[in-house]
Design a protein around this nucleic acid. Structure first.
Length: 821
DNA sequence: CATCTGGCGTCGGCA
DNA sequence: ACGCCAGATG
């Protein structure tokens, strides 16, 4: 335990350098750490050290005994951020940090809902529907209602329901004020109501419900709400600019003064809540849940609000002072992350958003390197540039793990991947098809859910015929009918196969399935009522996949993809075992919660030695020495769809701003003149945001003006030397366009000679081509070169080649377009 | 009941 | 170019 001497807060000045918690803070940061009052807004520009401020603020509260750990609720955007914050606080004050709630909105709400579920018709073992699950359910309802005839697609219905829930409008509330004389509106209202009924029946919440239902719970049961109001005395919210209305309301509910003031503790409150810490008995006492509302600290940056599309309301932060009268506002403008060139570019870009509070990031780390710009003929060209630059940075001593490549949409990752594989650059994609969205993992989860929450009909239906056991749509309908007629659950209907009116073969199959589920139930939820060991989840999962024949059918399959699926399932079982190790008291419900709430931003396990590829959204909150922002084109960033939305282009600008402010030392902006999408190649225009960056900040290796927009082949064929050498370098790309084009005779920049980068169409296979150091080879694109070393084994052997003209490259021997000379 | 095939919409980010 | 779905066929 840390037992540091108490310091006097509030009047603290910068001179207080002795206290390690306050050491090295600038005056604004110091104020943000030490201010005490009902409400505090910390406007934290990118890289201004807000995490440090937040953790020190918490640490100080604890160390000064202003609060017990259990009285602190800190909310972050991702689980990863929560874990980091917990670690950093623990690093400052030691084990005391343990009783705090540091979590995402969603995890905090799940925790509350699991405790209180019985209050309103759910059970502790409720399941959480991710957007895929809820889409599947909505799809079924849309079909049942034949609503597609009214132009109601599942996607549209889903997003509308989500928006309504984020506004805390439930199905009834919506029906009351909807125009039900419009048949389409009526259909939608019906589907919404049915959807909510189905969720309730399945004992399930969707993502939006987790927040909204917690708010409803607090409003319907003030005594329950008071429990939490008394418990949490200090509430801190990170990334406040990305909160939606429901989250805002939740914070409001939690920060209200508890009602029953001065009364004895609510007996309900004692129920498993650990309101009072055991150690709370002597010494200087924190305020023990008096009549005051909790103190609220929010941290945010409206310039980094990038989630309006899913309901985030930027006004939550811009109107904070109105919402919480007397609130203190602290502005953090000094940036400790990036060089001034990068910041100047960021400031210039974001300055074009008109409705923002002026804020100017500055740095004292010097101008630094110029921003590097590059325009490729195609996305492959662009990717090659990125790969080459990554390699040259690597040789200059930047580790792969300190480099990241950003793009606007996930589909852009493919071209980068292809080139990276060929160039043998180790990379890792964050996001994309997520592990937990893979079909086989979803199946495994459905098996677990069928046991943990048999009311969840969707889960049971999902596994009904996986693996194939001859139970098709007809049989499924029979089961559903039987369940309805006898008012039992779908799951329980499986217990009476003989009464379903199906053939003996199918009856046997159903019996088998029922038995497997029962066996797993016995393992995870023993009838004796004893608490099963945490390893029971992994054990039951193994039993389920084994005895259901799921493993067997994958092993028997000849589809090569099924091998990967088996590996994924093995990994999933390993996840369950890990969980048991880390959570000795964990139950199946805990495991399913954890799995449901992980996001791709969470498994950024900064694997050293790999370049990170991710969307700009995923990049929020991260930082790297070198950053590549790719696809800086109109219709991509700003994205085409944003043009029609109010505030859309502004949000896109903020997203771009988030992207460039991730870079510490080196920033690369790249684009392509043509881009393939929908299977067609189309001409791409440079993004308007490029024009907003002062020209003298950018060193264009190849500016948009250098590239003939009529297509790479033609330009490449011209292959002329540029007369004036590097004349266009560093100039405004758009000015370059005005240069005489001379009927397509625009010469190639010499930069192109350093980045020869045509990409051959298909992957080839060199088999077991033997290469040794000293061999001369010819490469289709790079010309001749000498092998300097060979590393790796088997299919992953890599040749390190110094080409005569193209410089040093690493090539995967198996697939590189090379031949031995 | 399972498998195959062709046509269609899509690719906007996410806890 | 891809994945998903509906409808036809085995």
């Amino acid at each position: 335990m840390t037992e540091a001497p108490l310091i006097v807060s509030g009047s603290a000045g910068p001179a207080q350098g002795e206290d390690p918690l306050l050491a090295g803070l600038n005056p604004q940061q110091l104020e943000a750490v030490t201010y005490r009052g009902r409400a505090l807004l910390i406007v934290a520009g990118a890289g201004s050290g807000k995490t440090s401020v937040l953790t020190r603020r918490i640490a100080l509260l604890l160390r000064q005994r202003e609060a017990w750990p259990s009285q602190i609720l800190a909310i972050t955007f991702t689980n990863k951020a929560a874990g980091e914050m917990r670690e950093r606080v623990a690093g400052l004050v030691g084990e005391t940090a343990r009783g705090m709630w540091i979590s995402t909105f969603h995890s905090a709400c799940v925790r509350i809902l699991r405790r209180e579920a019985e209050q309103f018709g759910f059970t502790k073992s409720f399941t959480i529907y991710d957007s895929g699950d809820s889409r599947a359910l909505i799809k079924r309802l849309v079909k049942e209602h034949e609503a597609d005839a009214f132009g109601l697609t599942p996607a549209a219905v889903q997003s509308r329901i989500s928006k309504l829930k984020n506004e805390l409008t439930d199905a009834e509330g919506h029906a009351r004020q909807a125009n039900l004389s419009d048949p389409a509106e009526r259909k939608f209202a019906d589907i919404f109501a049915d959807y909510q009924r189905a969720l309730q029946k399945a004992n399930a919440f969707d993502f939006d419900d987790l927040i909204a239902q917690t708010v409803f719970l607090f409003r319907a049961f003030p005594r329950v709400a008071d429990t939490y109001r008394r418990r949490f005395r200090h509430i801190l919210v990170d990334e406040y600019q990305d909160t939606n209305h429901a989250q805002y309301a939740l914070i409001h509910e939690l920060t209200r003064p508890p009602a029953g003031e001065g009364t004895a503790p609510d007996p309900y409150a004692m129920n498993g809540m650990m309101i009072f810490e055991p150690e709370l008995s002597a010494g200087a006492e924190p305020d023990e849940g008096g009549a005051e509302g909790a103190s609220l600290t929010v941290v945010g940056d409206s310039d980094q609000s990038i989630y309006a599309f899913r309901g985030a309301d930027i006004r939550n932060i811009t109107e904070f002072e109105r919402d919480f009268p007397g609130a203190k506002v602290v502005l953090l403008e000094q940036n400790y992350r990036s060089t001034q060139n990068i910041l100047s570019a960021a400031n210039a870009v974001i300055g074009n958003n008109f409705d923002r509070k002026a804020k100017n990031l500055w740095s004292d780390r010097g101008a630094g390197e110029k921003i590097v710009g590059f325009t490729g003929y195609s996305q492959h060209d662009e990717a090659q540039f990125v790969a080459d630059e990554v390699e040259s940075l690597r040789r200059a001593g930047v580790p792969y793990s300190e480099m990241a490549v950003f793009y606007r949409t996930n589909s852009q990752s493919r071209a980068l991947e292809e080139i990276f594989i060929r160039a043998a650059v180790p990379y890792k994609i964050m996001g994309g098809t997520k592990f937990y969205e893979r079909a086989e993992i979803k199946d495994a989860l459905a098996y677990l859910i069928s046991v943990a929450n048999p009311a969840d009909e969707m889960a049971v239906r999902r596994i009904l015929n996986k693996p194939r056991r001859g139970i098709g749509g007809v049989t499924e309908a029979q089961i559903a009918l039987f369940a309805e007629q006898n008012t039992i659950s779908f799951r329980d209907a499986l217990r009476s196969p003989a009464s379903l009116g199906v053939g003996p073969k199918i009856q046997a199959a159903i019996t088998r399935l029922d038995e497997v589920l029962n066996e797993a139930t016995g393992i995870m939820l023993p009838p004796s009522g004893e608490v099963p060991p945490a390893t029971s989840v992994a054990d039951a999962l193994t039993v389920l996949l084994d005895k259901s024949g799921y493993f067997e059918s994958l092993r028997a399959s000849r589809d090569p993809q099924d091998e990967a699926r088996l590996e994924n399932l093995d990994e999933f079982i390993a996840v369950a075992r890990d969980f048991a190790r880390n959570n000795p008291d964990g139950t199946i419900a805990d495991f399913l919660t954890e799995v449901a709430l992980v996001s791709d931003a969470d498994d950024l396990d900064d694997e050293s030695g790999t370049v990170s590829l991710m969307t700009m959204h995923t990049a929020k909150g991260l930082e790297y020495d070198a950053v590549f922002v790719t696809g800086v084109e109109e219709d991509l960033i700003p994205h085409r769809i944003s043009a029609g939305e109010p505030g859309g282009p502004q949000e896109e600008r903020r997203l771009f701003y988030v992207g460039i402010t991730r870079a510490r030392k080196r920033l690369h902006l790249s684009l392509a003149m043509t881009r393939a999408q929908f299977g067609e190649v189309s001409v791409a225009m440079p993004s308007r945001f490029l024009q907003e960056i002062p020209a003298d900040l950018v060193d264009w290796r190849q500016s948009p003006g250098d590239v003939n927009s009529r297509g790479g082949t033609q330009s490449r064929a011209l292959n002329a030397r540029r007369p004036g050498g590097f004349g266009g370098r560093g100039n405004d790309p758009f000015a370059a366009k005005a240069l005489p084009k001379g009927g397509g005779l625009k010469p190639l920049s010499t930069a192109m000679d350093r980045f020869p980068n045509k990409v051959t169409g298909k992957v080839r296979d060199n088999g077991d081509l033997e290469l040794n150091a000293g061999d001369r080879i010819r490469h289709d694109d790079f010309g001749e070169g000498r092998v300097e070393a060979v590393t790796g084994e088997g299919a992953k052997r890599i040749a390190h080649v110094r080409f005569d003209t193209a410089g040093q490259k690493k090539l995967l021997i198996k697939i590189a377009p090379i031949a031995k000379l």
